[in-house]
């Protein structure tokens, strides 16, 4: 009797265990990411472009870097394990591309030369090192970092908009196109455009309130 009970209990435990196992597997399946190269340009090009431009400050170079990132992503797509989100993975590649870029422009002879003078104006008198350190009260670097994060937050919010709204909003706000040009290009009338802008802005306000101001 007792032996049978034990067996039963064991059996029950097994059932429970296997249940939890399947649950675990299920959870893992949920978090495995997949690559979708067809949607890369639409989903991530702007985000990556901003990331690159903050680091190389040249639109042409930034564009090339983004393009190279996509190529490299395609090439090594089979090495993608799926434990990072697609965008994170692409940003990691872009990071390497930016480093490679600086390595390339610095490898030319004489570019990496270190100046040993106290100041760049070699014959200036009394320029001590103390006078050349960065201003501790300057907020320049912090501002730049913060603005970069802000840009990322805004792009995340724009990505959540319906396609037409995000298109109109980016054309108007980021590319600064005139109302007339946008209407001609998309074949809509101005009041239509303002309605879309209105909806986009309202959604963005709500989204940024959550993502940026943490209210």
């Amino acid at each position: 009797m007792t032996a049978r009970k034990l067996e039963q209990r064991n059996g029950n435990m097994k059932v429970v265990k296997s249940n939890s196992l399947t649950f675990d597997e299920h959870d893992e399946n949920m978090t495995v990411h997949q690559l979708n190269p067809d949607t890369w340009v639409d989903s991530y090009a702007d985000y990556l472009f901003n990331y690159a431009i903050a680091r190389v400050s040249d639109t042409e170079i930034a564009k090339d870097l983004v393009q190279e990132t996509f190529f490299a992503g395609l090439k090594s797509a089979k090495n993608y394990k799926g434990d990072a989100a697609e965008r994170t993975w692409l940003v990691a590649i872009l990071k390497r591309k930016v480093i490679d870029h600086y390595r390339k422009i610095n490898s030319k002879k004489g570019k990496a030369e270190v100046r040993v003078n106290y100041s760049s104006k070699s014959d200036a008198d009394g320029d001590w090192l103390e006078e050349q350190i960065a201003d501790p009260f300057s907020s320049f670097e912090n501002d730049r970092l913060e603005n970069e994060e802000l840009g990322a937050a805004i792009y995340e919010c724009i990505a959540q908009l319906p396609q037409k709204q995000s298109l109109v909003f980016t054309m108007k706000t980021i590319q600064g196109m005139s109302t007339e040009d946008i209407c001609n290009e998309l074949g809509i009338n101005p009041s239509n455009l303002w309605v879309m802008i209105h909806r986009a802005r309202t959604t963005l306000m709500g989204c940024l309130n959550q993502n940026w101001f943490n209210l």
Partner: peptide, 26 residues
């Protein structure tokens, strides 16, 4: 406020033409 934020972030993006060119090359 939203306008201010967008200006501060100094957003840049690729035009549709550049994007479709990228897609083609991919």
């Amino acid at each position: 406020q939203l306008t201010n934020l967008c200006q501060k972030a100094n957003l840049q993006n690729l035009t549709e033409k550049e994007k479709s060119k990228m897609k083609q090359e991919i």
